[in-house]
Computed example of a mutant assay.
Amino acid sequence: MRRLTTLVAAAVLVLPAGGAAARPAAGQVAAAARAAAGTPVCTVDDERLVEISGLAATDDGYVVVNDSSDLESRRRIFFLDRDCAVTRTVRYPSRPRDTEDLVRAPDGTIWIGDVGDNNRVRETVAFWKLAPGARSPVLYRVSYPDGAHDAEALLLSADGTPIIVTKDSGTPGLYAPVRELRAGQTTPLRRVGEVTLPRSTTSNPFSIFGRLLVTGGAVAPDGTRVVLRTYADALEFDVTDGDVVRAVTEGTPRVVPLPDEPQGEAITYDPDGTALLTLSEKAETESAADPVLLRYPIPDREPKQSSSPGTSAGPATQDTRLDRDRAAESSRDVTGRFVGAVTLTLLVLVVAAGFAIWRARRRPSGRGR
């Protein structure tokens, strides 16, 4: 969220950027190459969508929500086509406080987490549930058992229960309702576990802070995987027997770098589950570019293309080539900067040594004194 951005940006001034000045080891070069795999899909240029915090993919487009907004026109559930153009919106029956994430169930039900609380002052947070074909979502209020938390990520269990993942630094907590949700009542939550984020060096605008805060979540279309994201990386977990909580709290994630997104908060799977899709909030400047939907292939999940002679490359093959070219370019760029720095250092040493020899030859020998 934008208030957090201001605080973190100020702190980053006294912290080193993620690996910017470090000598690139072989593993870092490889990581940089992998991180170049994000491919632009479409641009969101609707003036109402500048604080996108939640994203879900459908068969014919996307669903998104903004986070907290003072403008009524931005407090909607937005449906987009495949070109990221808004096709329709759904109003809330009452004003949401801070909608931060959304997930889409297999039957098309959309769950929205109204769980943002920067100042940790809310007595209750909420879920909005939009059933397929419904004209407006239904509100369900919930309360934490251990005081207020700020949160920006939502997951969905196999039985359709929404799970909050908090934005606590380093070890986010997982909270789920203790019983079936009921409209018009406040349902208690219980803490069902926590997730320890792996170490990361992925470059992002908020340096170390950006690697320690969970800002979004999603469930794969077939329910066998879930993903959490930070400002820097996507962390994908395998789900066994539909147990999302166990997957996140006990599993070891596969890391997909999401480098240098302006303020990455939204993430989802594409409809076939072979890639991750992300969106950032728009930066706080008049000249800032509109949010761009990015696609990151998941390793070992990309569909295989025919390599028969004489066949033309399809769209997936072209995307793969583009990803490979970008990866190679990124690797060359990192390596080039390192070689350039070493060369410049050697040049300075040579010049310094030559100057010292010249000074020594011009110095009087001391005879006759």
Rank of each mutant, 00 (worst) to 15 (best):
residue 299 P to F: 09
residue 135 R to L: 13
residue 320 T to G: 14
residue 103 V to Q: 00
residue 112 I to R: 01
residue 308 S to A: 15
residue 229 R to E: 03
residue 121 V to S: 14
residue 234 A to L: 01
residue 289 A to S: 11
residue 69 S to F: 13
residue 294 L to C: 04
residue 85 A to P: 00
residue 295 R to Y: 05
residue 96 P to Q: 09
residue 295 R to D: 05
residue 34 R to T: 13
residue 39 T to S: 13
residue 94 S to A: 15
residue 38 G to V: 01
residue 291 P to Y: 02
residue 167 K to S: 08
residue 349 L to C: 09
residue 243 D to N: 13
residue 210 G to P: 12
residue 170 G to Q: 06
residue 289 A to E: 14
residue 150 D to F: 05
residue 39 T to A: 13
residue 278 T to P: 02
residue 318 Q to V: 13
residue 229 R to C: 05
residue 349 L to K: 07
residue 345 T to E: 11
residue 71 L to W: 14
residue 315 P to I: 04
residue 285 T to D: 11
residue 29 V to I: 15
residue 225 R to G: 00
residue 27 G to F: 06
residue 45 D to M: 10
residue 118 N to Y: 14
residue 302 E to V: 14
residue 24 P to V: 01
residue 365 S to L: 10
residue 33 A to L: 10
residue 324 R to V: 06
residue 269 Y to C: 00
residue 60 D to C: 04
residue 37 A to N: 10
residue 43 T to Y: 08
residue 174 L to H: 06
residue 366 G to R: 02
residue 158 A to T: 04
residue 350 V to P: 07
residue 314 G to H: 07
residue 319 D to Y: 10
residue 167 K to Q: 07
residue 147 G to S: 07
residue 270 D to M: 04
residue 159 D to T: 00
residue 150 D to H: 06
residue 72 E to K: 15
residue 200 S to I: 10
residue 141 R to E: 09
residue 6 T to E: 13
residue 173 G to F: 07
residue 184 G to F: 13
residue 112 I to Q: 00
residue 314 G to T: 10
residue 152 E to W: 03
residue 143 S to D: 08
residue 331 S to W: 10
residue 354 G to N: 03
residue 197 L to Y: 05
residue 336 G to R: 08
residue 40 P to D: 06
residue 320 T to W: 14
residue 143 S to G: 09
residue 103 V to W: 04
residue 59 D to F: 04
residue 183 A to F: 10
residue 292 V to E: 09
residue 94 S to N: 08
residue 228 L to S: 01
residue 107 D to M: 06
residue 177 P to G: 11
residue 66 N to P: 02
residue 109 T to D: 09
residue 115 V to N: 07
residue 277 L to R: 05
residue 273 G to Q: 03
residue 291 P to H: 08
residue 369 R to S: 14
residue 35 A to V: 01
residue 342 V to A: 13
residue 299 P to C: 03
residue 174 L to N: 03
residue 234 A to K: 01
residue 315 P to D: 06
residue 362 R to V: 05
residue 177 P to K: 10
residue 335 T to W: 14
residue 135 R to S: 14
residue 146 D to E: 07
residue 339 V to L: 15
residue 62 Y to H: 14
residue 251 G to S: 12
residue 301 R to D: 06
residue 32 A to R: 05
residue 241 D to K: 06
residue 90 V to A: 07
residue 140 Y to I: 01
residue 86 V to G: 08
residue 202 T to G: 07
residue 212 L to M: 10
residue 309 P to W: 12
residue 170 G to E: 11
residue 66 N to H: 03
residue 147 G to C: 04
residue 128 W to T: 02
residue 363 R to T: 15
residue 317 T to A: 15
residue 53 S to D: 02
residue 33 A to G: 15
residue 137 P to R: 01
residue 313 A to F: 13
residue 260 D to E: 14
residue 127 F to N: 00
residue 281 E to L: 06
residue 328 A to N: 11
residue 362 R to M: 12
residue 368 G to N: 07
